[in-house]
Amino acid sequence: MIRSITQKKSDEEIDHLLEGLDRIFIIGCGTCATLTHTGGLAEVEAMGENLSGKGKLVTGEMVLPVACDNMAADILREWSEKMNQADALLIMSCAFGVQSIAQQTSKMVVPALDTLFIGKQTGAGQFDEICTQCGTCILGETGGICPVTSCHKGLVNGPCGGTNNGKCEIDNNKDCAWTLIYNRLKDLGRLDSMRKLQAPRNHQREPSPGKYILPF
């Protein structure tokens, strides 16, 4: 399943963002941020204690089932009294959640997390970015492995000279995407695909910020 991968901001940064804001309402997310242990119930409670210890008044804390879902508005309405007592909402979800909540309330929102990437869980406690939504998918010619995302240079015409025993020269924890692609295409008997000269990417296939309207 697609997951939004987040990391908690440093206490210093959160303190800075909350300067002059004394009454805080904390919102977590029961989906991705719970999975990554960045904005689940336990983290929300710990944040509440931390802020109380620093002299803030926590007017309430709760965990939305899915912070980025528009249905969150209905749930937040039930908490409106405690939310209205707060100077700001501290949101422990990814930036999708932060922005969804910002659209649904008139309160100031402060993110407690940084959103690193949209990825998927590939092992216990391990998440990988496998698609950057480039708009021009070449997976059909790369054995189902995306070099645009998985190569640090996004090379689409084969590996650079820095392959390091199957790993990327810039990070031993990351596989060389092109080694994976080569092995896969070899198994499939499709190495010819690597000979094809891929043309420069069309970055305007869906210009950022993307917007799509169903053609009904």
């Binding site: 015409n157 084969g158 590996p159 000279g161 820095g162 392959t163 390091n164 025993n165 199957g166 080694t179 080569y182 190495l191 690597m194 000979r195 000269l197």
Partner: peptide
């Protein structure tokens, strides 16, 4: 010299084709 070694000649061929 980079690995996998066996793609290094085809990679040169691709640069020549380019």
């Amino acid at each position: 010299f980079a690995d996998p070694f066996e793609i290094r000649v085809p990679r040169l061929a691709k640069k020549v084709a380019a």
